[in-house]
Simulated scan of single mutants.
Amino acid sequence: MEIIRFAELKNEPWRNKGGVTRELASHPKAASAQDGAWDWRVSIADVTKAGDFSTFPGMERVLTVIDGELLLLTVDGAEHPLEKYRPFRFSGEAASHGALPTGDVRNLNVVTRSDTYKGFTSIIELSKKRAHPVFEGQLAVLLQGQATVSPGAAEDDGATDAETEAAPAPEPEALGRYDAVVGSDVRSPEILGRGFLAVVSIDRVAG
């Protein structure tokens, strides 16, 4: 089970100095969060002043405000008021500008190479009674509240019932705000708690 701890991520300043980015994951792993050498990337950005966003030719973006009230995003001349927890998809090569009418915001960004991958972001409310599994190709980010994560049930590996019962259950691990859980189809991690979770899915484009 893999957990990406937000507190351990490195800040990378934007080219225009309008904010900083922390990369949660990318593929393939690039030397810099800003060089665009990857096919997909998931990151969290703090926007502290109005300004132009970087362009990513040949890519598509899904941006979600996860802290703060409102980002006023202008894409190719069209204005879009983006409220908290409402994902917005737009072309990475479009001219885009962000304004902050209500103060600083923090964004969850999913950027994918258009001809190879498709990115999706869903915001879900957690439950203490029903665990939310995180599957292969997904990344789950705790946005708000308190939660723990545990490995899911193991698939049949030939062990006897007695051996399975004797094996100690793994202790759940606490998640901090903006910590990310990497999905798996082998003992898919399961998250329990109260609050809100962003589930990012990266799907390969058919063909």
Rank of each mutant, 00 (worst) to 15 (best):
A45H: 04
D46Q: 10
D46C: 02
T48C: 11
K49F: 13
K49L: 14
A50G: 11
G51I: 01
G51S: 04
D52I: 11
D52P: 13
T55S: 09
T55C: 10
G58W: 01
V62L: 09
V62D: 03
L63S: 03
L63F: 05
T64K: 00
T64M: 01
V65I: 11
V65S: 08
I66S: 01
I66W: 00
D67H: 12
L70F: 04
V75T: 01
V75S: 01
D76S: 08
A78N: 14
A78T: 15
Y85G: 00
Y85A: 00
R86C: 12
R89V: 14
R89Q: 15
F90S: 02
F90D: 06
A94G: 03
A95S: 13
A99P: 12
L100C: 10
T102V: 15
D104E: 14
D104I: 14
R106G: 05
N107W: 09
N109V: 05
V111I: 15
V111Y: 02
D115Q: 07
D115F: 04
G119A: 07
T121Q: 06
T121P: 03
S122F: 15
I124Y: 13
E125C: 09
L126C: 05
S127G: 07
K129P: 07
H132S: 12
V134T: 01
E136D: 14
E136F: 11
G137Q: 02
G137W: 02
L143I: 07
Q144W: 10
A147V: 06
T148D: 11
T148V: 12
P151G: 11
A153R: 12
A153H: 13
E155Q: 15
E155G: 15
D157W: 07
A159L: 13
T160N: 04
A162I: 12
A162W: 10
P172Q: 06
E173P: 10
Y178P: 08
V182G: 06
S184L: 03
D185R: 02
R187I: 06
